[in-house]
Lab assay of single mutants.
Amino acid sequence: MAAGGDHGSPDSYRSPLASRYASPEMCFVFSDRYKFRTWRQLWLWLAEAEQTLGLPITDEQIQEMKSNLENIDFKMAAEEEKRLRHDVMAHVHTFGHCCPKAAGIIHLGATSCYVGDNTDLIILRNALDLLLPKLARVISRLADFAKERASLPTLGFTHFQPAQLTTVGKRCCLWIQDLCMDLQNLKRVRDDLRFRGVKGTTGTQASFLQLFEGDDHKVEQLDKMVTEKAGFKRAFIITGQTYTRKVDIEVLSVLASLGASVHKICTDIRLLANLKEMEEPFEKQQIGSSAMPYKRNPMRSERCCSLARHLMTLVMDPLQTASVQWFERTLDDSANRRICLAEAFLTADTILNTLQNISEGLVVYPKVIERRIRQELPFMATENIIMAMVKAGGSRQDCHEKIRVLSQQAASVVKQEGGDNDLIERIQVDAYFSPIHSQLDHLLDPSSFTGRASQQVQRFLEEEVYPLLKPYESVMKVKAELCL
């Protein structure tokens, strides 16, 4: 049975990233139509530049190519590739079939990587351009969430054990800070992308030097003109047959890092959902379990974690691919890159769409948070109580021993009897502590235990987050809708 299948058929496997999760716009960027249309555009740009620099290419040939950029006979191309065992030459023939007058000058002087690699770089750039505003929107939604809850005390956790208090907004800023680093890295790697350009079979530009009869300047002009037509500021000066596969490492490393950030955020949300302090959106008709109707599973956060793990592992592909590119190139890269580049971007696209949807509907339960604080705060307040007693004339050592005994009794009630923490009640009825009984409410005010959390939130948002989001103001209103 021949390899390949009808990918629109229910009898043929289709990647869930495309069929179930990723956005239509990201799927289109990695589609065959987008790819092969870009090949034709690159052939047109090459012909236009070659004509401008004096090669015998007519206006009629150029116009014929322009008129057929979208006229792609995919069936013919597939048949040609089956016959020739070469995808680029299959599309040269297919393009030439609908451009008979231009057929002889299509791909003039070029090698397969002229269309293959340059198209990949265009796709990487455009895919990054799709991700950047999506990530900015996630940051914006979380920034709104953090600002609104900047002063809401909550129990902090280290080692997932109760620690000092923080605020809900401050905790959210930990998430935002990681995503801001990801946004900066995505922008950097996007701006650092260079075009492969017009380089020939081993990167020496020998074929173009021959076409222009040894004119170095025209060869350099050709490279520059096509690079500018493709919208790049610069091209690699040095290439082998391909652009260095280190570029793929750079791009997928940034995406993998984004995956790590999203995994951490969504894990926190899942843990908070278990504590009943916070939940992701839950639709009115949504079913959490087929057997347990009360369940409210954090399905979206779980999906993000599941896909983020996949995204983090994909960076190993370009690392290994770059390491086995012998001399000017081997074909070890080809099949692998067809999979890992598309999957990385479709996965990143999915987790950003999902995280935006989550961040637009996060639900906080202040009463649950308050109750958990009441359970733990008495123990945390013991040092403040000791200091207040010393100020009232008591002995630190005597007070410490009193607190120690009462704390152990209260802990026994919590752990052995399943009761509430009654340390404060014990202190309130103990005559030894009568000098500070009137101060206990103040000493137990949760806001006095959150330090500068709310001020940190305000400063972080104003100095770091809002300036970073400013270039994306025009796209901030787009909502994230999930079908599944």
Rank of each mutant, 00 (worst) to 15 (best):
E425F: 11
F36K: 11
F160W: 06
H7V: 11
Q408K: 13
L46V: 04
W43I: 01
I176E: 04
C305N: 07
A206N: 11
A103P: 06
A110G: 15
S290V: 02
E80K: 08
R190V: 09
C98F: 11
G394Q: 09
P435S: 09
V226A: 01
M26A: 03
K35Q: 14
C99Q: 07
V363Y: 05
F74T: 15
T350H: 14
E279W: 07
A102P: 02
G419A: 09
L311E: 03
L46D: 01
D144G: 15
I237R: 09
A342G: 12
I339Q: 15
T382A: 10
K295M: 00
M76L: 12
L69Y: 07
A453M: 02
I123N: 01
D332G: 04
F282L: 14
L55Q: 14
R137E: 07
L346F: 13
P378Y: 07
F327V: 10
R404N: 08
A431Y: 05
G451A: 10
F236A: 05
I176C: 11
Q375S: 04
P467K: 07
V475S: 13
R372A: 05
H93Y: 07
Q458F: 11
F232S: 04
Q416P: 04
Q408D: 10
Q397W: 03
P298Y: 01
D430L: 07
Y365C: 09
R371E: 01
I105T: 12
L142G: 02
E48T: 08
L222K: 02
S253W: 07
A273M: 13
Q184S: 14
V363C: 08
L69K: 08
S19H: 15
S334H: 07
G394I: 12
E343A: 10
A136K: 14
I358E: 07
Q356M: 08
V219Q: 01
Q455G: 08
P133A: 13
G203C: 00
E302R: 06
L222Y: 00
S334P: 05
P467M: 08
S67G: 12
D430T: 15
S289F: 00
V251S: 08
I358G: 04
D6I: 07
A431T: 14
F433N: 03
T330G: 11
D248A: 02
S454E: 12
Y432N: 10
C399K: 04
E343L: 01
V324D: 12
L271F: 07
G169N: 04
Q397L: 07
H442E: 15
T227Y: 10
S447W: 12
T166V: 10
H86P: 01
Q205R: 01
I139Y: 06
A410T: 04
H91K: 01
V475M: 15
M278V: 10
R459N: 14
G5A: 08
Q286S: 06
A388H: 03
E148L: 11
S447K: 14
I139D: 02
E220T: 11
L482G: 05
F74Y: 09
L84S: 05
M26K: 01
E283G: 13
V115E: 04
L155K: 00
P446Q: 01
R171A: 00
A3P: 06
P133D: 09
I139R: 02
K479C: 11
M76E: 10
R303I: 05
V414R: 04
L128V: 11
I105W: 01
M89P: 02
R459F: 09
T154Q: 12
L211N: 13
Y13C: 14
N126S: 13
D268F: 05
C305T: 08
A90L: 00
L186W: 06
M380W: 02
I385T: 03
L346R: 05
S438F: 11
G451F: 05
S454V: 15
L341F: 15
S23W: 07
V364I: 14
T158V: 01
Q325F: 12
E328A: 04
E277Q: 06
E280S: 02
D192A: 15
S67N: 12
V457P: 03
N353H: 04
F433G: 04
V315N: 09
A90S: 09
M278H: 05
A206Y: 02
A308V: 06
I351W: 03
D129K: 12
S31M: 01
G8T: 15
E343K: 09
G203L: 01
D216V: 07
T354Y: 06
P378T: 04
T354A: 15
I424V: 15
L461H: 01
R374V: 06
S112W: 02
Y365R: 13
V138D: 09
Q325T: 08
A102G: 08
K246W: 01
A78W: 10
R245I: 02
P281E: 15
D422I: 08
E328V: 02
A230I: 04
R196A: 12
G259M: 04
S257D: 05
D191P: 00
K391F: 01
A206T: 09
K246E: 03
S334R: 05
V92H: 00
I358S: 10
F208T: 03
G4D: 15
S334Q: 03
F449P: 03
N185L: 06
T330Y: 03
I369E: 06
C172L: 05
L484W: 15
L135G: 09
E343T: 15
E81R: 00
R40D: 00
R141K: 15
L130M: 13
G104Y: 09
R171I: 01
K170L: 06
E48R: 03
I105Q: 06
S306I: 00
R14Q: 15
T313L: 08
V457R: 05
G288E: 03
L186I: 13
D87A: 01
S448Y: 13
R137N: 14
G96A: 12
D144Y: 14
F74C: 14
T347F: 14
D117H: 01
K264P: 04
G240I: 06
A47E: 03
F212K: 04
Y365G: 02
A308M: 05
I62W: 04
Y432F: 14
L53E: 03
K199V: 04
K246R: 06
M181E: 08
I436V: 10
S19G: 15
A103C: 11
L484K: 15
